[in-house]
Simulated assay, not measured.
Amino acid sequence: MSTKDDILFLFEQGIKAANPEFLFEDFWKKNPGLEQTFNDQNKKLFVFALGKAAYSMAMSFSHYFPVNKGFILTKYGHLPSEKLKMREDSIWKYREASHPILDQNSIDFGMEVLKILKELGSNDRLVVLLSGGASSLFEVPIDGYALNDLVSIQDQLLRSGKTIQEINQERKKYSTVKGGKLLKELNEELEVFSFVISDVIGDDPNSIGSGPTFPSRNYFILGNLSRSIENIVFEATNLGYKTKQISDTWTESTKETSILIEKEFLTALESPEKQIVLLGGEMVCPVFGNGLGGRNQEVSLRVAILLDKHKVNREWAFLSGGTDGTDGPTDAAGGVVGNQTISDLKAKHWDPIEQLENSNSYPILKDVDALVMTGPTGTNVNDILILLVDSAKA
């Protein structure tokens, strides 16, 4: 396989490790007592699945326990088309709303599910399946805030380059369901359990999906980025790569990240072995101009520009991708670049630096087949960045 084949395979293995099916399987093995609780049929089981991984989490959970009723609220394009078309069946209601900025559906469906949840009582058991993206998908605003107000606020926050923790802290101020407020809306006799896939650095429950059901006693984190990075290290070692893991809590800017990758690239060249450098987290990416892209595509373009300066006789590849399969407001998970990327861009009459200054990475990477296209993955555990450097030729 080529270096590009290897890097796409390894990214895929990172996503696979965060699949809800595997996460629940491991969780129930480690928590047999809790599994027994859910096998108790004395209470009706209602499942509210919320976030980009909502559908796959709901289906995985229902493989283990009989769900009486459920509500799935996820991002546009993340439901199977037949489910979206039917909108509901005997058990589930299927709904989609907007991400990363909310829309009217976020509020309408937020109010719809809240009304249902308020009707649950002591004879019911509520399971909340939470994943990244929930903050914009599920909203019931406080009095005095209309949709246009919230859209304007969120757009400014996302363009500011603030961290997701800072953004979600602001979101809580105008919400009646974020920051544990959802629990306060429910019957105090209702038994509530939360199972979470973390897309937040440090797995802070206050920040994951803006914490609608935290703090609470029955709150469990199923999976996170560390698990995905570990699986990539395992698979890369099997492929013969010497591995180096820098961090799985990376929060620097795309510019600073690209400079780090350049340094790691030069260090890797000092050894003849084939090598992998791994980084995970959620980069900061202020938006300039009116271009189209995302933080993973931008850092890929930045790395391509920096590494192209070093004309080396060794094959290399760099990939940065969102494990949810989407990067910013695009249909790409991220970007994958290599030795020929800048030459290919110039052959297509693109000026990479000019496009970078306009935050316009998507169309130019697309033009040279340098986008990572996975489609919705059914999970969401931050971003994975991979640098591969092939062995030196004899």
Rank of each mutant, 00 (worst) to 15 (best):
L23C: 08
T379Y: 02
Q340K: 11
L190H: 13
I261K: 04
G294W: 04
V368F: 03
K184I: 00
A18D: 06
V303P: 02
V196T: 03
V284E: 13
M373S: 04
P215E: 08
G202E: 05
F220S: 12
G180Y: 03
S216E: 10
V303Y: 07
L365E: 05
N313L: 09
V233N: 01
H63M: 09
N206Q: 13
K44Y: 09
G209K: 02
T377Y: 07
G281M: 14
E282G: 15
F265T: 00
F71C: 05
V368I: 11
S247D: 08
L260M: 12
G240K: 05
D155F: 06
T257S: 09
L225G: 07
Y241A: 02
L260D: 03
L260V: 12
Q169N: 11
E88G: 06
L114K: 03
L225M: 13
G375V: 07
G334N: 11
G14Y: 06
M1K: 13
P286R: 03
I15L: 08
V337G: 11
H99T: 07
P80K: 03
L356F: 10
K16W: 09
Y219Q: 13
D248V: 14
V192C: 07
F195D: 00
S160C: 07
F318L: 10
S253H: 07
S56R: 12
E12K: 13
T249W: 00
I364L: 15
L158R: 04
P215W: 11
F11A: 12
N187I: 13
N238I: 10
V381T: 14
Q36D: 14
